[in-house]
Design a binder for these strands. Sequence first.
DNA 1: CGGGTTTGACCCGCGC
DNA 2: GCGCGGGTCAAACCCG
Length: 150
Amino acid sequence: MSSSNQRVDGEQYSNFEFSEFLKFDEWIEEDDSSLAISDSSHNPVYRARVVGESSGTISPPERRSGEERIGREKKEAKERVAFKTKSEVEILDDGFKWRKYGKKMVKNSPNPRNYYRCSVDGCPVKKRVERDKDDPDYVITTYEGVHIHQ
DNA sequence: CGGGTTTGACCCGCGC
DNA sequence: GCGCGGGTCAAACCCG
C-alpha cells in the first residue's frame, strides 16, 4: 500500500465514537456542507450509518464448513458506518493497516468494490470501499465492526 | 523472507 | 428447486 497522502487524521478518527455517532439512516451533510473540499486528501463530507437492524437480528457470518465456524451466536448487530469522501484514491489511511481480501464488480456500477480487513489480530473490523457511480470523484468507505485496539 | 496484493472459485441467503 | 447477487477464502505472485 503506498499512500501518497500523509496521515494527518490519525487522531481525528481516534476521537470518533461510532457507537455514539451511529444515529442516522441516510447521507447527512457534515458541517462542511459547503463542500469546501479542503485540499486535505480526505475529509468526510457525508456520513451515513446503517446499524444492523436493532430488532431484526441478522445471522452472523457463519462460513461453510459447519464445524469450525459453528459456535458463533448472534450477539448484537455489527455497526456499519459509511463515509462518503471526495478522494482520488480509495486507499484512505485512517490510521490502521488494512489487508485487501477481495474485489468484486457491482452490477449496477462499472466500478469494482474492494474489500479490506484489519491486519491486527483479533480485530473483526472490515472495510468496504466503493466508488460512487454518480460521483466518480467521491469514494464511499463503509466500516464494519469496532477496533479492539486503538 | 514476510507481508500484502491479485484473481478466480466457492458459498450462502434470498428471490422467483 | 434453481438462479442471481453479494461476500469470502485461497493459492500464487509481487514488493520491500
